[in-house]
Design a binder for these strands. Structure first.
Length: 430
DNA sequence: TCTGGGGTCCTAGGACCC
DNA sequence: TCTGGGGTCCTAGGACCC
């Protein structure tokens, strides 16, 4: 088939795989990893899936199955996952070239394979898979096809039938594509969520093949305009979702957290917001950007419904900065008044968050920096602070507004050590 | 009695993703 | 008692302009 082939490489049960790497006794044993505050299950090993542990399901609802079957449970350890993710991506970069790789998420990358001979794609993919596993210890699945959507579909089938496929599936001929789409429910297509899947089933469209035969004009009317048209084309092997430039930076940066326990006081919320602002500002500086707008939001449990119903209600406030900034203290100075606007005494708060947007590259504010020696010094201070916080413990250096007690901090009772990113927690060979 | 048309920019909100 | 966090893209509709 003509046109460039694209691959998606996806780490299998990534967070669980990371935990197992440092706890080999857990290989072939059921393992789950929990979200922040140990709230939800966000990664399951194949064994845990077989036991019926649900994805994104609240931990406490699965506690019975977990205890009965001695499932190993971990709080999420993002330092560890981030570091192993980097190793996987670096390996792929080495194998296919940095300009052929688009990191899509912490555990997935698209590869542009259009320069490779089509007849060899299967073997090349198998080699890629084996090399990544050998170099990093993380198992991956690979799907290859003429469009991103079809490669995601191939990847899903490869992962579902690891024995039969060897963890790799290449879709090239019309027959191969048809067979794969017939086996895939619309719910499982990349880009079809709950709302669209429901609509499609009502219309009698149940699998990917049926959907691929619908006219574009129908999709434009019924599936979100150009989004739907793109979906149909991608299903037909016409690439419409381009590979992204690896150098692109984020357009928005958020730091948000559920509180470990309900919070009532303004002081605690101010501390949380100041801390989240610091985190967000670090991310901002890491991509050499400044923010033009800052938003703060808080979430309460709402007033409607039964007493224990989970009914989150959020309220936002934002402000446009006089000039784009990446300075933690300046961002905090704008965030705190927003917090005060949002606060109502006596209300129980579950969560707060900070969102930085209208991001611009740092060099666009250089004129501003150079015109003002004071600000330039501040920027150097920020860099020093980031370096210290990164190489030492988190938050050795921080602003007093972030508070010294942090009793709103999240629960992480079952976190593994940060084996690869903290000197005092390095893995020891037994 | 009559009540244009088109362009641009911005924001809120929906839908989806991992 | 207990339900994550961080993103993207698109559309509709309002405000404003000529």
């Amino acid at each position: 088939m003509a046109g460039g082939m694209k691959a998606i490489v996806d780490c299998n049960n990534f967070y669980c795989a990371c935990e197992r790497l440092f706890e080999p006794s857990l290989v072939n044993q059921p393992v789950v990893v929990l979200s922040n505050n140990d709230g939800c299950i966000i990664s399951r090993s194949d064994e845990a899936k077989k036991l019926g542990v649900g994805m994104a399901a609240p931990y406490y609802q699965n506690r019975d199955i977990i205890e009965k079957n001695k499932v190993a449970v971990f709080s999420s350890n993002y330092n560890l996952y981030g570091d192993l993710s980097m190793r996987v991506m670096d390996t792929l970069r080495k194998l296919v070239g940095a300009d052929k790789l688009e990191v899509y998420s912490v555990d997935e990358s698209f590869l542009d394979l259009s320069h490779l001979p089509p007849a060899e794609l299967s073997q090349i993919s198998l080699d890629l898979k084996h090399t990544v596993e050998q170099w990093t210890g993380i198992a991956v699945s690979i799907g290859v096809a003429p469009s991103k959507l079809l490669s995601k579909t191939a990847n899903r089938l490869a992962k579902k039938d690891k024995q039969g496929t060897g963890g790799v599936m290449v879709l090239q001929t019309a027959d191969e594509i048809r067979e794969a789409l017939e086996k895939t429910r619309v719910d499982d297509l990349w880009g079809v969520g709950r709302q669209f899947a429901f609509k499609l089933h009502q219309m009698g469209i149940d699998n990917g093949w049926q959907l691929s035969k619908m006219p574009e004009e129908w999709a434009r009317k019924n599936m979100g305009g150009v989004v739907g048209v793109r979906l149909i084309r991608e299903l037909n092997g016409i690439p419409c979702i381009p590979m992204k430039d690896p150098l692109e930076v984020k357009k928005m940066i958020a730091t948000t957290r559920m509180f470990g326990k309900p919070v009532f006081s303004l002081d605690e919320i101010r501390e949380a917001v100041a801390t989240y602002t610091s985190r967000a500002a670090e991310k901002l500086r890491r991509q050499s950007c400044a923010a033009g707008m800052i938003q703060v939001f808080v979430v309460t449990n709402g007033n409607r419904g039964a007493a224990y119903e989970y009914n989150p209600q959020s309220r936002y406030q934002y402000c446009i900065l006089p000039h784009a900034s990446s300075d933690t203290s300046e961002l905090i100075r704008h965030a705190l008044p927003l917090t005060e606007l949002l606060y109502q005494p006596g209300v129980k708060y579950l969560k707060a968050g900070v969102i930085l947007s209208q991001l611009v590259p740092d060099h666009s504010i250089q004129a501003n920096l150079f015109s003002n020696g004071q600000e330039n010094r501040r920027r150097i201070l920020m860099e020093a602070m980031d370096n210290i916080n990164f190489s030492q413990r988190d938050d050795i250096v921080k602003y007093v507004a972030s508070g010294l007690t942090r009793n709103w901090k999240m629960r992480q009772e079952m976190r593994s050590k940060r084996f690869t990113t903290r000197w005092d927690e390095l893995y020891e060979v037994p």
